[in-house]
């Protein structure tokens, strides 16, 4: 399935790492991810003494060789998960040129995530939002779903304003089964509302990751001369000399980022800053490795 949003360099790395559910999720099938239910499944947990009637396939013969005692290996039952990919399609995501456009970057990330999830036989769902849900593709673990996701991504244009917080709360109320939630957005909404939404999701037991997509300009504010900033989401303009207010702007942005990050840390939400000037595989790989390491602990 050729697509501009599936880049081999990104996919290969992501595929290798895979996406593991860090917390115990509920799944329909027996997959790779932890299930709260124990049984004879793949992941060994502990030994117990053989009792007549146990399946002799699970006898630890090596242990018998060492101790001349019959013991049975017990396993955790592994299940698959559903990954909800929430993509911010608001007008503010329009910023950036082709190479560093936030929405394109976010689409790339969304596509990659959906592909990796489905490849490892988990389900992926795509939700695109602005001020409200614009697109809601149901979760599916088939590759055809990936195609659908890709096709949908290609047709998404930035419009509308941003209203993340309430939408996250809606999602939390709607999706009862625990799963993964990937939020890909520039998070240009009130911090309190966003954190409230995240908190709600976490309360429902979801494994939440925020991919905070920002253009370098939005952080560093490198403009010079006389600039008229035209609002992308609302009809407003601000005329200024950016170099005069740069320090103040950077302070404001850093304060916002700190607050958001602190909030995410408090609710054990993974926070990944995505700089559209940096190739996507770097932060994504780092994120996946971190998840992997966290999962083995």
């Amino acid at each position: 399935m050729p697509s501009t949003y599936l880049q081999p360099s990104v996919l290969s790395r992501a595929e290798a790492l895979g996406i593991k559910a860090r917390s115990i999720v509920e799944g329909l099938r027996v997959g790779d991810h932890k299930s709260p239910f124990r049984g004879f499944s793949v992941e060994f947990v502990q030994h117990r003494e053989y009792a007549p009637g146990d399946d002799i396939r699970h006898i630890d013969w090596k242990g018998y060789g060492r101790s001349e005692r019959y013991t049975i290996k017990q396993y955790e039952q592994e299940t698959n998960f559903a990954a909800h990919i929430l993509l911010d399609g608001s007008k503010s995501m329009e910023y950036g040129d082709r190479a560093t456009n936030k929405l394109e970057y976010a689409k790339l990330l969304a596509a990659t995530l959906s592909y990796v999830v489905v490849k490892q036989r988990d389900s992926a769902a795509l939700n695109v939002f602005g001020a409200d849900w614009r697109v809601e593709l149901p979760a599916s673990s088939s590759m055809a779903n990936v195609n659908t996701i890709l096709h949908t991504l290609e047709g998404i244009v930035p419009e509308d304003t941003t209203r993340i917080g309430p939408l996250l709360e809606q999602l939390a109320d709607r999706v009862r089964r625990r799963g993964l939630v990937f939020i890909i957005s520039d998070m240009f909404d009130e911090v309190d509302a966003v954190l409230k939404g995240l908190k709600h999701l976490r309360f429902q037991g979801h494994d939440v990751t925020v991919f905070h997509v920002l253009h370098p300009d939005e952080v560093e504010f490198p403009f010079t001369g006389n600039v008229k900033f035209d609002g992308l989401e609302l009809p407003e303009e601000i005329k200024t000399r950016p170099h005069l207010i740069r320090p103040a702007y950077q302070r404001v942005v850093n304060d916002y980022l700190k607050e958001l990050r602190a909030g995410c840390d408090a609710y054990r939400v993974d926070y990944v800053r995505m700089n559209t000037g940096v190739p996507i595989e770097q932060p994504l790989s780092k994120y996946l490795v971190t998840r992997l390491q966290m999962g083995r602990l």
Binding site: F223, V227, F229, E233, I238, K239, T240, I245, V252
Partner: peptide
């Protein structure tokens, strides 16, 4: 009247806050 270069901008709320903080000094 100075000439301004138009730039579409998404992070208006940050910009607005920064301008408010610096307007008196400027």
């Amino acid at each position: 009247r100075a000439r301004y270069r138009p730039v579409p901008w998404g992070a208006m709320k940050f910009l607005r806050l920064a301008v408010e903080q610096t307007s008196r000094r400027l």
